Amino acid sequence: MELEIRHLRIICAIAEAGSLSRAAAALRLTQPGLSTQLRRIENLLGGPLFDRRPSGAVPTAFGEAVLARARSILPTVDDLLGSSALAARSATPVPNFRLGSVNVPLLGGLVTALKEHHPAARIVSRGQGSSVPLVDDVANGRLDLAVVGDSPGYELAPRPGVALHPIATEPLFLALPADHPLAAHEEVTLDELADEDWASPHPDDDRIREYWSTTFLTTGHRMRTVHEVEGRLLLDLIRAGHAVSLCQATFEESPGIAVRAIAGNPLWYRHLLAWHRSGPLARLGPTLATRATDAHRAAGDRSPAYRRWLRDHHSEPPAP
C-alpha cells in the first residue's frame, strides 16, 4: 500500500469532524470501513494519528505533524487538478515557450513579437553567458528559441536540426570611464590602449575571450586582462576608473561610462537566432528573425556611439 491523496483527505476530514462517526458520514463511508482505512494509513506512516476518546478523535503529536503537511499539500493538489481540468476542456491549449539569450538587447523584442502571435502563451526565459550551451539546449529540446552570437573565425558549430539565422553583425566598441582622457575622442586606436588594464569575461565555450586576445596579438598589441568579471562587476570597475573593456556597439552608455568606436574596426560580433527545425517555433522562426533585426536596429538607435559609427561608415548596420 502506498500513500495516496485520498488518504490525506481522510485524515483531514477526521480532524475537521472531530470524530470517526461524523467523518464517516461526511465521506459517505461506514464507520467500520473508515476505521479500517485509518488503521492502514497509520500502519503505513508508522504511528497513531489520533487518540480515540469518548469525546471523539484527537490528533496525536505525530498526527498534528502529518496534518500540517497534508493541509499544505492539498490546496496545491486541488489547484493543479482544477487547472488540468480547465485545460482539458479548452479547445485551444495554452502554448508554453522557453527562450534563452546571451547578454544582448534582442530578447524583449522577441517576447513582444511572440505575444502578438500567441497572446495567451506562457513565455519563460533565462540568460546565459555563453552561446554554446544555448544552442545545445535548442538542439536537445530544452529551449524553443535562443538569441546567440559568435565571432569571425570562431563561428558556432552547426547542430543537427538547429537553424542558425543571422540577425546582424556589428563592430565591437570600447567601454571606458567617462572621465578618461580618451573619452574626448569619437574613436580610439589600439596604440592608445597599450598601457590600459582590461576587464574581460571568463573564458568559456564560445571562445570570445580567445578571439579578443588573438586579434590584439595579430595587430601587434596585447590585452592585459587583470579583472575577470562580467555584468555589473565589470561596469563597476570601469566606472571607478580601474579598467576598460570591449562591448557591443549597441551597448547603451550609462552614467560614468563612455562608449567609443575602435579605429580600423578590428573586432566584430555577429547576432544569430537559433530554433529547432521541428520545434514549436519553426514556422514562426523567420518572422521572429525579422523582429530580432528590428530590435537590433532600435538598440543601435539608442547608442550615440553606434549612430556616429553608422554615419561615418554605413547608412545601415552591416549585413550579418
Rank of each mutant, 00 (worst) to 15 (best):
E4Y: 02
L8G: 12
I11H: 02
A15Y: 03
E16W: 07
E16S: 14
L20M: 14
R22F: 09
A23Q: 02
A23S: 06
A24L: 08
A24P: 09
L29N: 00
L34E: 01
T36N: 12
L38S: 01
L38Y: 04
R39F: 09
R40H: 12
L44I: 10
L45I: 06
G46M: 04
F50C: 07
F50G: 06
R53N: 03
A57Q: 07
T60Q: 08
G63N: 08
E64M: 13
E64H: 13
R69I: 11
V77K: 10
D78G: 01
D78Q: 14
S83L: 13
S83V: 00
A85E: 15
L86C: 08
T92M: 11
N96W: 02
N96A: 14
R98P: 07
V102I: 15
V104H: 03
L106S: 03
V111E: 09
V111R: 05
A113Q: 03
L114V: 04
P119K: 01
A120H: 11
R122P: 01
S125H: 11
R126K: 09
R126I: 01
G129K: 05
S131Q: 01
V132E: 05
P133K: 01
P133G: 01
L134R: 01
V138L: 02
A139K: 08
A139H: 10
G141A: 03
G141F: 02
D150Q: 00
Y154I: 00
P158L: 06
P160R: 02
V162I: 09
A163C: 13
P166W: 02
A168C: 12
P171W: 00
L174N: 04
L174S: 02
A175G: 11
A175Q: 08
L176Y: 03
A178Y: 05
A183G: 09
E192N: 05
L193F: 05
A194E: 11
E196T: 04
S200N: 12
P201G: 03
H202L: 14
P203N: 01
P203I: 03
I208A: 12
R209T: 13
E210I: 04
E210K: 11
Y211F: 11
S213A: 14
T214H: 15
T215Q: 04
F216A: 09
L217E: 15
G220K: 07
G220H: 08
H221V: 05
M223V: 05
T225R: 09
V226C: 11
V226G: 08
L233T: 12
L237R: 13
R239K: 14
A240I: 06
H242T: 07
T250P: 00
E252M: 13
E253F: 08
S254I: 15
G256L: 10
A258W: 06
A263D: 10
G264K: 09
N265Q: 15
P266L: 01
W268R: 13
Y269K: 13
Y269L: 14
R270A: 09
G279Y: 06
G279W: 04
L281W: 09
L284I: 13
G285S: 14
L288W: 08
T293D: 00
A295M: 10
R297N: 12
A298C: 08
A298R: 15
A299W: 05
D301V: 06
Y306A: 08
R307T: 08
L310F: 04
L310D: 04
D312K: 10
